[in-house]
Amino acid sequence: MIDQPAPLATSPFNTSSPARLPKFRCRNVQAYYGKTRVLHGIDVDIPDQSVTALIGPSGCGKSTFLRVFNRMNDTIPNARVTGHVEMDGIDIYSDQIDPTVLRARVGMVFQKPNPFPKSIYDNVAYGPRIHGLADYAGELDDIVEHSLRRAALWDEVKDRLGEPGTSLSNGQQQRLVIARAIAIRPEVILMDEPASSLDPIATARLEQLIDELKQNYCILIVTHSMAQAARVSEHTGFFYQGALVEYGETNQIFTNPVDQRTQDYITGRTG
């Protein structure tokens, strides 16, 4: 279902070039945990092949919003998402969408590196095996190598693919899970504070990787570090108490914010 051509791309009313089309369109997105509303009607368009940063104080709903895009909120008991979310013009919350198929197109990297207790090879091969991506003998090897190269980890691990993924350093583990996400050829990569457990050197390496990946992927990154948001992203959204207070080009948000709350947050007066 999700593999249909995006209707909006062929719409006669749409005059802009396909590349400029937003990857995601969110209209009035609300999220609830039980009876508590944690997202209060978010309207935003997320561009493709660029990095969009979501910033805001703890508990503002930015991580919940990130998990809207791969329907990971479905796995939390009592969590509910309403409103309209389109990916390439298709409603990803429609009944016809299988969340497991959606998640194969929208990869995710978590706050803490979470390699599976398996070998480095098996970690990367996990997704391709599940989705049956390797057609001929040796293709799985190629996918693993390509993904590890793409995640800038190949040279460090090529001689020890059989060792457990957990034996790598924190920074390497985070690049391993990025390779694992890339291996299923997603279009989008969601990153939930990916650098929060990394030291400055590993963080710099990760940011460099994000910069390379945005050529091919739509990347959304939740971060607590405003410097990081400023460095890696083209667009930034500022969340405050479950609302998207301000969204725009990163440059503008950090130099000339419109909303007073954004101004207070980026100058360190709140949050």
């Binding site: 796995t75 998640r103 995710m108 979470n114 599976f116 997704g127 989705h131 299923i184």
Partner: peptide
């Protein structure tokens, strides 16, 4: 678990 579900398992 989250890692596995996020890969579409």
């Amino acid at each position: 678990r989250d890692g596995s579900y996020a890969l579409g398992a």
